[in-house]
Design a protein around this nucleic acid. Structure first.
Lengths: 192, 192
DNA sequence: GTCTATACTTTGATAGAC
DNA sequence: GTCTATCAAAGTATAGAC
C-alpha cells in the first residue's frame, strides 16, 4: 500500500470522466475518450479503475458527495429546519436549467439491470436522500414529518427533471414557492 | 402503398419491442431479441423499420399516445377541470410503483445527444404535455393557470420518478393530496 | 521504473444477403 | 431463419519516451 504513482491521478481521471458523463451520458462515452480528456495512458486508468463499471461507480459516489455538500452548505447557511427544506429546492432549481438533469437519476435510467453496481449505488443514494429529507423534516413542527420530507423529495425530483429538459420556465421558479406552501401547510396542520 | 404483408405485423413487432424496452431499457435490448420476441423474421422487421432508431421513435410515439389515452380517459371520467388535474396525478401515482418509470423520460436519459431523433421526439412530448396541462388549468378559475399546470407537471414527474425507484411509499400516496392542495391554493388565490 | 501511445484480441450489436 | 460483413467499444499486451 505504500505506492501511489502520482498523488492526484485518480482525481484527474475522475474529473475527466465526470465531465464527459455529465455532458453525454455514460453509454455514449468510451474509455478512450476519457483517456484523451484526462491526458493519461491507458495503463494508468486501468490501474486506478479495473473496469468501466468501477469508474461509473466512483462517478456516482462523487455525484452523491456533491449532493451532500449542497445539503451541508444549505444547513450552515440557514438555521431554521423549515427554511432548509425550501432552500434545498431553491438550490436544485438553480442548477437544473443548465444541466442535463441529476447524474444519479440519469445513470440509474441508463442501467436498468438491478444487478448492475451502478443501479444499486444510485438506488442506495435515493434511499439515503429520502432519509436525509425526513430527518430534516423531523426537526420542524410538521404534523407528519415523513410525509413532508417525501413531498420535498418529490418536488426536488420534479424540478430537476423539468428544469433540465424544459429549461428555466416560470414554472420551475414557482417550485420554490410550492415548497414553501407545502412546508407551511404541514406545520399549520400540526398547530390546527 | 398497396402491399401490406400482414395486417398486424407492424403492431406485433412494436408490441414486442415496447415490452422489452419498458423492461430493460433501449440500449440493453438487441434487434435479435426483438425478433425472437415478435416471432418474425429479420427481413420483416427491417421492412417495417429501416433501423433501430426508427423503431425507438415508433416506441416513443406509442408511449406518448398511451399518455394521451390516460388524459382523455380522465377527462371523460371527470368533468370538473380542477378534479381532472388531481386525477391525472392519481393515475400516474397508480402506475409508477410497478413500472421502471416514464418510458419517455427514461429513453430521453438514454439518448442525451440533442441531434438524435429519440431525444427530439421525447423532448417534443414534454413540451406538448406542458401545454396539455396548462390548457387544463386554464379551464379552472386559477389565479395563474400556467403556473398551476406547470406545478401539476412537476408533481407528475416527481411522482413517476419517485414511485418507480422507491416504490409505493406513503409519500407517493401523499402526492395526490399535494396536487389537491396545489389546485385549491391556486383557486383560492384567484378568489381572495 | 513509471507513464504514454499504440497495436491487438474479443465481444456484441447493427444490418444485409441468401 | 441462418449466416456473414462491418463496426465500435472493452480490455490486454507491448513497445517506446522521460
Amino acid at each position: 500500500m505504500a505506492r501511489k504513482p502520482a498523488a492526484g491521478t485518480r482525481e484527474r481521471i475522475l474529473d475527466a470522466a465526470a465531465h464527459l458523463f455529465d455532458q453525454r451520458g455514460v453509454h455514449a462515452v468510451g474509455m478512450q475518450q476519457i483517456i484523451d480528456e484526462a491526458g493519461c495512458g491507458k495503463q494508468l486508468l486501468y490501474r486506478e479503475f479495473p473496469g468501466k463499471d468501477q469508474l461509473v461507480v466512483a462517478y456516482l459516489e462523487r455525484s452523491a458527495e456533491a449532493w451532500d455538500r449542497i445539503v451541508t452548505g444549505v444547513c450552515t447557511a440557514v438555521d431554521a429546519p423549515e427554511d432548509r427544506l425550501v432552500e434545498l429546492v431553491r438550490a436544485v432549481q438553480g442548477m437544473a436549467p443548465n444541466s442535463r438533469g441529476c447524474p444519479l437519476r440519469n445513470t440509474h435510467a441508463e442501467f436498468p439491470d438491478p444487478d448492475h453496481p451502478a443501479h444499486q449505488v444510485s438506488l442506495r443514494h435515493f434511499r439515503r436522500v429520502r432519509e436525509q429529507l425526513r430527518d430534516l423534516a423531523r426537526r420542524t413542527p410538521a404534523a407528519d414529518p415523513d410525509r413532508l420530507g417525501d413531498r420535498i423529495m418529490l418536488i426536488i425530483d420534479g424540478v430537476y427533471v423539468n428544469g433540465s429538459t424544459l429549461g428555466s420556465t416560470g414554472a420551475a421558479e414557482a417550485a420554490v414557492g410550492l415548497a414553501g406552501d407545502v412546508v407551511r401547510a404541514e406545520i399549520a396542520a400540526a398547530v390546527g
